[in-house]
Simulated scan of single mutants.
Amino acid sequence: MKHFILAGLLATVAAFPAVADYTIIAPANPGGGWDQTARTMQTVMQDEAISPSVQVQNVPGAGGTIGLAQFASQNKGNADALIVGGYVMVGAILTNASPVSLADVTPIARLTGEYEAIVVPAASPIQDMQGLVAALKADPGAVSWAGGSAGGADHIAVGLIAKAAEVDPTKINYIAYSGGGEALAAILGNQVTAGISSLGEFQAQVEAGTLRLLAVSSAERIEGVDAPTLKEAGLDVEMQNWRMVAAAPGLSDEQKAKVSADIEKMVKSASWQEQLAAKGWADTYLSGADFDAQLKADITATEAVLKDIGLVK
């Protein structure tokens, strides 16, 4: 009788897929956007019982490409391994001529997005985006821009602005800073003409009145944000700095489906939505073939811009 009971229990357990103990690679230092995304995933996946144990490992360097290479080489076929990344990684793969790309992992979904914001110090004589564009047209090199890493989302956005303003993108004076704090200090210290980063990076200073927000890169005005879009300012530019999650290479269709289902359960949970609201992140969840198509289009467009800027041959 005991043998029948045991066999029945084993059959019941086998009928349900094992719950994964995920490890998420954040290919950046602690505290940044990718690290925050990974740790938010960790919290929600554990709170929602999607995974009993989620570990986060930081592997920083080279715009995420060091972590990406390590992840791809060490986790083939491992359905319990995830990595976060995003638009910055797309640019870094191209500018660093990385031998490993997003084609070497299994993209699962776009999770969140932030729009770029263009600011000037409150004391700047530049009052609006039209004034900044006029200065850019008059002497591109005299307008200095503070932003994140070379070839990253901020740099790409400046290149797109220059192109839309019919200014040679190779003549832009872009100063790359390794951290948001350094860029912010340069802007507040009037060491540069303008600054560009995700809206959240500047929100507190804009509200305090120490920075003037000229425009945002969204398609439409953002609720609660007193600034026009770049399109309203006469520049045909729309851009989102998105973040994504990918799984390891070499997964079976069944493994990919299980990971995708876990991520979908996470993003549709109340816990995830509460985290997005608290952090000011937009819910831009996109998965499957739609995400694959968006990723392909973004890689093609980014390569074109980086060639225009002169960062990619």
Rank of each mutant, 00 (worst) to 15 (best):
138 A>D: 11
85 G>C: 08
296 K>W: 12
129 M>D: 06
80 D>R: 15
116 E>K: 12
250 G>R: 00
140 P>F: 02
259 V>Q: 09
107 P>Q: 00
169 P>T: 10
159 G>A: 10
313 K>T: 13
24 I>Y: 00
9 L>H: 04
286 L>D: 12
196 I>M: 04
215 A>K: 03
148 G>M: 11
148 G>L: 11
157 A>Y: 05
190 N>V: 09
245 V>E: 02
309 I>R: 15
206 V>P: 09
112 T>D: 04
52 P>K: 09
27 P>V: 00
226 D>N: 15
277 A>F: 05
143 V>S: 02
18 A>S: 14
92 A>I: 02
117 A>W: 06
130 Q>H: 13
221 R>M: 04
119 V>T: 05
46 Q>Y: 01
44 V>K: 02
20 A>Q: 13
254 E>F: 02
122 A>I: 08
42 Q>E: 15
238 E>I: 06
2 K>G: 12
95 T>R: 10
13 V>H: 05
58 N>P: 09
100 V>P: 07
41 M>Q: 09
293 A>V: 07
263 I>W: 01
249 P>I: 04
99 P>C: 10
164 A>G: 06
220 E>H: 14
259 V>K: 00
223 E>S: 09
24 I>P: 03
78 N>W: 01
296 K>P: 04
246 A>L: 05
64 G>W: 02
189 G>E: 07
56 V>R: 05
32 G>R: 12
133 V>A: 01
291 F>R: 03
261 A>T: 13
173 N>I: 01
82 L>H: 06
289 A>T: 14
236 D>N: 11
301 A>C: 03
131 G>N: 10
246 A>E: 06
5 I>M: 15
283 D>T: 07
201 E>G: 02
187 I>W: 04
89 M>S: 08
159 G>N: 01
72 A>Q: 12
311 L>C: 09
178 S>N: 12
204 A>E: 14
311 L>F: 15
222 I>W: 06
255 Q>N: 05
234 G>D: 06
67 G>K: 07
51 S>K: 01
218 S>H: 06
41 M>R: 05
208 A>D: 14
62 A>R: 11
200 G>E: 06
144 S>A: 13
170 T>Y: 07
269 S>L: 10
69 A>H: 02
78 N>D: 15
233 A>P: 01
182 E>W: 14
232 E>L: 00
131 G>P: 08
170 T>I: 07
69 A>E: 13
200 G>L: 15
215 A>G: 03
98 S>Y: 08
112 T>I: 15
153 A>N: 12
289 A>E: 14
66 I>N: 13
45 M>P: 03
136 L>G: 07
